[in-house]
Design a protein around this nucleic acid. Structure first.
Lengths: 135, 135
DNA sequence: GCAAATCCTATTAAACCTATAGGATAAATG
DNA sequence: CATTTATCCTATAGGTTTAATAGGATTTGC
């Protein structure tokens, strides 16, 4: 299941992409328009900023804004930041690899074999979608 | 992340597919060979039996066994039984559909759009793999 | 100075996952 | 028929994660 964090993060990014000519947008507005708990969204936008997707301005007239073009924001990166590993098991993870404690041999592991295919096909979806494609 | 329940369930099914000519295999053997907690595996095999994948025999010489040919056991079905919905959000789920409470319009929802693609590509992997393919 | 906003940490409440406990039931065997 | 082997079944503990909230500190614009 997709976490709400990711869901809300994607919605916020989309919202900011749609309003990108308007300058900084306050959290309160995004939360209201997208039906998201404001405080929760606050922490999500913070991580998106810390990970280089968003810029922010404090004070009156402030808010969040995209610091890249929507076309340049790949879902692969977004998903890793919000949701974590794309792979369903760590032993097939590209960025978060870890061997399974219980599994003596990856090459002969049925779970490994199946999850590798799932990872590859999911990755292809994320790689072929930028933020611009979601609008 | 894949739950351990699913992981163990897949390993057990694979084990039973490999030993399918030997008749019923006791839980204890599978647990030992695949490094799985026996009690936990017990409950997993129970659900697999209740869902029509396995048969069982009690008492001495008893155990679990496949009641279909490995080729006929599709990963799509197995995954639904063990892991639940294949979709990452309920609004794109084929078998567990539920509308999102916070989302006024699916057609224009970016999350919906992306997750639909992920579901389709994942589904294709599960549909093109039977238990026989994992051995 | 005041209001509007982000920034940041901590805490709670609920849900879910993994594993275990403890026995009930059934079958095979000598 | 007693013993052993094995599944069957329910309940529950313990831990982890997630979602949301609380409460204030800081910065900015006017």
């Amino acid at each position: 299941m997709l976490s709400r964090k990711t869901k809300y993060g994607l919605k916020a990014l989309t919202y900011l992409a749609r309003t990108k000519d308007r300058g900084p947008v306050p959290i309160a507005e995004i939360a209201r328009e997208e039906n998201i708990s404001q405080k929760f969204l606050e922490s999500i936008l913070l991580t998106l900023r810390r990970n280089g997707f968003l810029g922010s301005r404090k004070g009156k007239g402030g808010g969040y804004y995209l610091i890249k073009e929507p076309v340049q924001i790949q879902m692969e990166t977004v998903m890793r930041v919000l949701e974590g590993p794309i792979a369903m098991v760590s032993c097939v993870s590209l960025n978060f690899y870890e061997p399974c404690a219980d599994c003596p041999d990856e090459a002969s592991c049925s779970v490994h074999k199946l999850m590798l295919q799932v990872r590859d096909s999911t990755l292809e979806v994320y790689r072929s979608n930028s933020l611009a494609d979601l609008i």
